[in-house]
């Protein structure tokens, strides 16, 4: 397995990257397959090599609502790293997907046993997967492309108490 390119793996220091990849399984999913469901046990995670995955939730009467999509290099799943280890959203492939799959138990044990590895992985998840996506989600909340006048409420903001 080669480790290169941008995204999650690119941000992990080379030694830790190699270590993570030694336990990766190469998997592929067909288009339209549900990988996990909201509320399910987060016992695995993936790093996408190709294809796209949609993260979604659902509300009765509105059906599935896609929150965001992930693509090449992205980490799919971070709920495995924090209790209660349950998915917050569902995931479905948009097209054929190839990915590295990891066993959450195995990685959690490695994190506990090797603090340096643990810190690197946790940092990478926090910075790349959670931090970057949180910034993007906040920007999206602002509804920047809304027709003039309609997004004032969102932009005007409010001071914290």
């Amino acid at each position: 397995m080669t480790a290169k390119g941008p995204g999650f793996l690119g941000d992990l220091p080379p030694g830790h990257r190699e270590r993570l990849l030694t336990v990766a399984r190469e998997v592929s999913f067909p288009a339209g397959m549900r990988i996990f469901e909201e509320g399910g046990v987060a016992d695995r995670f993936w790093i996408l090599r190709s294809g796209r995955v949609a993260l979604d939730t659902h509300e009765p009467g509105r059906g599935a609502m896609v929150v965001e999509t992930l693509g090449e290099g992205d980490l799919l799943g971070w709920s495995w790293l924090f209790e209660p280890y349950r998915w917050h959203l569902g995931a479905q492939t948009r097209d054929a997907v190839a990915a590295y799959e990891f066993d959450a138990d195995q990685i959690r044990s490695a994190i506990d046993e090797d603090p340096a590895f643990g810190l690197a992985v946790t940092r990478c998840v926090a910075a790349v997967a959670i931090g970057r996506r949180l910034r993007a989600a906040r920007t999206r909340l602002l509804d920047m492309y809304a027709p003039p006048g309609t997004a004032r409420q969102a932009r005007s903001g409010g001071a914290a108490p």
Partner: peptide, 13 residues
Amino acid sequence: TVDRPDTDWTGDV
């Protein structure tokens, strides 16, 4: 708390 504050809102968002 509100999802979308207006200019007068000083509470939680």
